[in-house]
């Protein structure tokens, strides 16, 4: 390990968050399909194909066979797999790998843009992916600049605020609350619609409280703890609500990746909490670290 000792745990949070996020999206691209269809069937795409010297049939397939688009969409999972591995192997001095992860952030940004377009260009849909888009870059920053560097911390806070603000906009009803928010609340807690709505509105208010609290030094630690817990609960909500013994593989192939790819929602606040521990806690933790960690 080449991370300096006090920052080992925070960086591990970022590593594991980025790893899970890329692993989840790798599964989506490998086993299911990336959500790019919404971006492809447009006049602009047709123009692009023409400029590339491809006929439309070559570009999107004739129907009888796959075209350029289908072939390359089917291969994108390799890029995500590579990014997944990079989250494990990237070190402070490995600039090529860092560049790869920053490009990975670009892939996640493209995904988020596709989701945004598919959601009728609802702004919160793009914003709430902020944590996912940024976590590879935050990891790179933590390695290159230091986990406690103000740029790293500021970027992590931006990622957290984006995630919670986007989620809060939906939960509080500034944009229409997605049906699956109600569905998961109802199924997991066994409550009726009015209670589910009350709980979602309350959660939405707390989402915005997180966005404010994380910026206030006196509140930021408690805020980070809450954000970690809430980020984890919302990430596991899908498999908890949807998996069942009666389904093939208990539904694991449909639901587990939904938690994995949302790992940044709790990994980033956990990273911040680890950074902001009280000095006594840090020293005690340092004392428990194996000496070998300092030799690298």
């Amino acid at each position: 390990m080449n991370e300096s000792n006090p920052h080992r745990l925070p960086i591990a949070c970022l590593r594991s968050g980025a790893f899970c996020c890329f692993a989840g999206w790798t599964w989506v691209h490998f086993y299911w399909e990336g959500p790019y269809g919404v971006l492809l069937w447009q006049d602009a795409t047709y123009d692009l194909a023409t400029r590339l010297g491809l006929s439309w049939d070559e570009f999107v397939g004739t129907g009888a066979d796959d075209g350029f688009v289908q072939k390359w969409i089917a291969r994108i999972w390799w890029l995500y797999l590579a990014c997944t591995l990079l989250t494990l192997t990237v070190r402070k001095t490995s600039w090529v790998q860092m560049t790869g992860l920053v490009l990975g952030s670009g892939l996640l940004t493209l995904l988020s843009y596709a989701s945004y377009v598919a959601a009728q260009r609802q702004l919160p849909m793009f914003i709430e992916h902020g944590g996912q888009m940024l976590i590879p870059t935050i990891l790179v920053m933590a390695l290159a600049l230091g986990a406690g560097h103000r740029v790293t911390v500021t970027t992590a806070i931006i990622g957290l605020i984006m995630t919670f603000a986007g989620h809060g906009c939906y939960a509080i009803g500034f944009w229409p609350t997605p049906g699956n928010f109600y569905a998961m609340t109802t199924l997991i807690l066994g409550v009726e619609y009015p209670t589910a709505q009350f709980l979602l509105r309350a959660a939405g208010i707390l989402d915005f409280a997180v966005c404010v609290g994380i910026c206030i030094p006196y509140l930021r630690r408690a805020t980070a703890v809450y954000a970690t817990a809430w980020g984890f609960l919302t990430a596991i909500a899908r498999p908890v609500a949807g998996m069942s013994w009666g389904l093939n593989y208990w539904g694991a192939d449909q639901f587990l990746h939904e938690t994995a790819l949302r790992a940044p929602h709790f990994a980033i606040p956990l990273f911040l909490f680890c950074l902001w521990r009280k000095p006594g806690e840090k020293e005690a933790l340092q004392a428990r670290q194996p000496v070998t960690a300092e030799l690298h």
Partner: peptide
């Protein structure tokens, strides 16, 4: 009640 994107798990996405 459906929970997955695309709703192929069966059921309704929006509240009853």
């Amino acid at each position: 009640i459906s929970t997955i994107s695309g709703n192929a798990d069966g059921g309704y996405r929006q509240p009853g």
